[in-house]
Design a protein around this nucleic acid. Structure first.
Lengths: 215, 215, 215, 215
DNA sequence: AATGAATGAGGATTCATTCAT
DNA sequence: CATGAATGAATCCTCATTCAT
């Protein structure tokens, strides 16, 4: 899983049109990996579930490993890309409050994860299981996010909405909470969606948590 | 993994004195499972790392499965048991504030997890990967915790420290945060311990998050 | 060996065209099982003798168990089917005497068993060793045979050739003798065929044994 | 199983007083071997069933193989020895008819086998499964029996009770029938005993079968 | 592009046997 | 005598991968 991974991550690539069979393979793999995990799913099972011969899988994806990456990477890149775009937009639109931003941010994440619940499961399971994948994705995120998040945080700091917390402490606390929040809902339980009310609770929890320091 | 698991959970057992080799097996398995995950660790590797023949593993633990349970279950039971005891003590000691309780609670968890970081990793990885184990442990927790937590929450509600949040909403928010907090530190990064300062931040984040509703 | 077995017996099946390698596997397994018994033959040995990888065996037969059944069941079904056909034909062809029938019956069995001596050995060895297989095959035989044998016996009874013995006593005595006769020749010794003279002796032994009761 | 066997057979031996534990081992092994066969029974199972440690089995019997022989050989020798004695007695007591001898012979065999049904099963199963054991026991029998049987058969030939059959043909036919008869009853079905009536049927079947040749 | 037969390395597990206590 | 922990070779089986068709 190693040389591949780094190259594949950087190759903001191809998306060459998939044949119908390739698509079936992808869907079957996502479903099975989500349910039982990568290590407990055999390529034979995937082929069967996809209605395809085992050879076909390897013809298109080369190895089981690269099939996993073909599932996770586009999803991960897309997710990060959207977050970056939102942060950048936020940085330059001075009308919105932190609360509005947070509500939008969580709502969009919730929608995206709800739509791709199985891929999220696959990704998280492997993030937990596979150190190499984790490090690689962490590095990729560390490369993409700060440039977008720092200016945004600065804006909120200046507007006084962040209290006196250092930006990375605030980020860590928020990330810890949101990570737990989404994993609890989409992985440990089987939620189809997250209600506005729940999102409201989460937003208030974070806002209050970050504010009023020392009080 | 199924019939075993339920029985094993309920059998608050034996801890029959282990031989030295058994102990070595356990240690090696914990280390390897923590690093590479249960599914990616072969019994041959464990035997090699433990300086033991493969047969010895099966002589004592019967199967790879039961070896995993022998690692996870005592840890999980002990963790829950300590939490229950703390909650019960808290319920009846009316001097402590919610803040004091939280600080104590997080500190103790942090210590316990730091001491058993590898077992925690093994457990969390398998909790994420193995649906059956997850359901079984969830059920066990659902059976042990509420009786201890509800009275404690009621006390804090009465003392006004909880704000107007329903108890289970408060619990969910706190659990989501603390889950993310500990996983981030002990699984996704390799922290030896958590500083008092960090704990202070976490406590304030939770307290403020739960309080000041609607404000 | 259990759920399989029942289903497999009833499935008067497929005989999907075997590849050459599958056929080799079957032949090697028959030879080795016949010689050393199922339990004393490893799949590695079979693979070696068949000039095939071990994986191939499992690809096609799923388990060592099912390989055994793939050998025994078609043979057993065919044997029974032929016996039933002979008995039915006999019932409606009123020209033949019991002696003629017996001579034909024994001759045909002898030919069939001589042609498939090794499979017969495999089957008998496992019939003796494996209680479950024995019971299943006994039940299958008990289901197939009586409908064909009873009318035939009635015809011989009416023609006075059976003496005054109850049909099932006659059947048991004959079966005990023929069982011993064939096992002695094809299993305990290594006969290539049974001569007409021997068959003549056997026929006379049975006929006289059944007749002249009380005399 | 090879060098052992021949020596052990000839060593009409020891019968050194068994300790209680040895006896337990023997009983457990007989029961388990009879039920599941030698190859499918582990020494661990035997030890468990006998309430003995695995080491004890090997202390006394040296190997699993020799434990099997310790079960089969005394039984086989005793069985043969009794048959020889009966034949010798018969040869010199001129009052008895062939019918009386046969009835006595079958009755005594039936009693002995009924008393030691499990050992008979063990022996027959292994006789069928294990070529080496079979050959060795066949050779032993071929060495013991003829000297006793031939004179007896001569007596019956002279008294005209055997018809005109050659002695070994008569012996083969009788042996085939009796083998089938006992195996059917004590191995393929689970008879506790054989009734006098059944024995009567068998005796008549054999007598008539052997007599009236050419009729 | 697709198939599926074939592979062989590796995996969990079993088991007869040994030996220190 | 008896124990039972320990062994390691052997066993059945799985699986990602290859390749001829």
């Amino acid at each position: 899983m190693s040389a591949d991974l780094h190259d594949a991550l950087l190759a903001h690539i191809q998306e060459k049109k998939k044949t119908e069979k390739q698509q079936k393979v992808l869907e079957a793999a996502i479903r099975l990996f989500a349910e039982k995990g990568y290590a407990n799913t055999s390529t034979a099972e995937i082929a069967l579930a996809a209605g395809v011969s085992e050879g076909t899988i390897f013809k298109h994806y080369g190895s089981k490993d690269r099939l996993l990456l073909a599932i996770i990477l586009p999803f991960f890149r897309e997710m990060l890309s959207r977050m970056v775009k939102e942060a950048v937009r936020e940085t330059f639109s001075s009308q919105t409050t932190l609360e509005q931003f947070l509500r939008g941010f969580i709502t969009h994440r919730a929608q995206y994860l709800a739509e791709h619940r199985d891929i999220f499961r696959v990704m998280f399971k492997e993030l937990v299981y596979n150190n190499e994948l984790r490090d690689e994705l962490k590095a990729y995120a560390a490369e993409q996010l700060p440039a977008a998040l720092t200016p945004m945080f600065n804006r909120f700091r200046l507007s006084g909405e962040l209290g006196d917390l250092p930006a990375d402490t605030a980020l860590n606390l928020t990330a810890a909470f949101l990570g737990g929040f989404f994993v609890m809902r989409f992985l440990f339980t089987d939620r189809a969606a997250i209600s506005e009310e729940e999102i409201g609770e989460a937003v208030r929890f974070i806002l209050n948590g970050l504010r009023n320091r020392g009080a």
